[in-house]
Structure formats: C-alpha cells, structure tokens
Amino acid sequence: MSALVEVSGIHKVYQRGAERLDVLRGLDLHVPEGEFLALMGPSGSGKTTLLNMIGGLDKPTSGRVVVGGRDLTRASARELAQWRARNVGFVFQFYNLLPVLTAARNVEVPLLLTRLSRAERAKHVAAALELVGLSDRADHYPSQLSGGQEQRVGIARAIVTDPALLLCDEPTGDLDRETAGEILDLLGELNRRYKKTVILVTHDPLAAERARRVLHVDKGVLIEAKAA
C-alpha cells in the first residue's frame, strides 16, 4: 500500500528563554493509506506535536512531512489552511465545538470554505450527522448534548468534507468507558468501511487496541509496539 503520510527525520525544538526543548528528535514515520495507527506515549513525549506536524498545524524545525504527496514543510500558512480544509479532519479531546452554533451549524463550518450552495451544504451536513447517528440532534446546541454526542458531532465535522486522513487527539480522553467504546467503534467503521486513514493519539491502551498498528513516542523518537 502506498504511504499517505511520510515523515522523514523531523526535529522540533522549542526555545523558552534560555531553555531549549527538543520535542521531536529525528523522527521517521510512514503511514500507508487506509491505516489505523495509534500513537501512545507519556505526556510531553511529543505525540501531539507529531500529530500537529502531520495535520499541517505546525512546522518542524528540520526534516520533511509529506502527506498525500504534498510537502507540508514547504507550504505557506495560507496554502496549509487550504490543504487542511480539503484533506484532513481533526477530532479533539474536548470536542471543540462552537457553543453558539447548533450541531448542524457546527458540522457545516468546514463547508463554508467550499463553493457549495446552502442546499448542498445542508445535504452534506445531514449525511455526516446520519453517519454518526445524530440526525435527530441536528438542532441541538452543544450544551444540550452529552459528551459522547458532542464528540460524534466533532467527528461529523471532521468527515463532512470527506478527507482522506482523520487525526484524532485523545478523542476518548474526556468520555466514560462505554461512550469511549462507541466513539472508537465509529472511528473503526470510518477506517474499515469508508477507507479513512486514522491516526489516533491516546493514553488509553484499550483505545490503542482498536488500531492495527501502535507506536510509542518517547522523548521525541518512535518505538514500534504492535502490528496487527
């Protein structure tokens, strides 16, 4: 299978005053299309930083990140924004929904950047909400939803533009065991049925078990743990 994500020798250094923090140290990673990869590791190990690099949210100090053939390290901020809008869906630990918008309006947000008409956007939003099983909650505000439902809306928002890559940062970190299981089922289905490449950052070994491959990030380098 061809690699969707190719990370080659990336370093990420943060300078805080006189202190130098080497978060990633020459890390290499190849993620094939259709992969379900879990990244584990202790806090501060660099896994979220790595996810940010792959999602084009941050740039490495050195090294290359190529996703879908596009070298993200050479793209401008504007190009990265446009690339993210078309190619990546993000799922966050705390859902990060806009509290002033209904579930449907939240899911619609990434579509505002497209040329789709209002009716077309509504159709896409309805399909995404149906896929996550929340068609009946379209007009509810985040404050009217449970944590699991909020995360489902977050996933609907991530997939509404039909991206090839889903980047999930601790998506079950704020949920109870049962709800977390449902969310992981949903991510698994998106991977198997809809061929989405999923990269999941998690602390939870049970969550990581759902992935086909698990990598540990420790002190800025990768250690392979399991291959399904």
Binding site: G55, R78, A81, A85, F90, N96, L98, L113
Partner: peptide, 15 residues
C-alpha cells in the same frame, strides 16, 4: 480556542 478550531479546519488567518 474557537478561533484556533476555525484555523484548524481550514480558515485562513485573513479569513
């Protein structure tokens, strides 16, 4: 953080 989310999903800085 909401502005960060907008940028994450593809809104440019200018937008």
């Amino acid at each position: 953080s909401e502005l960060g989310v907008l940028k994450t999903v593809g809104f440019t800085d200018a937008t």
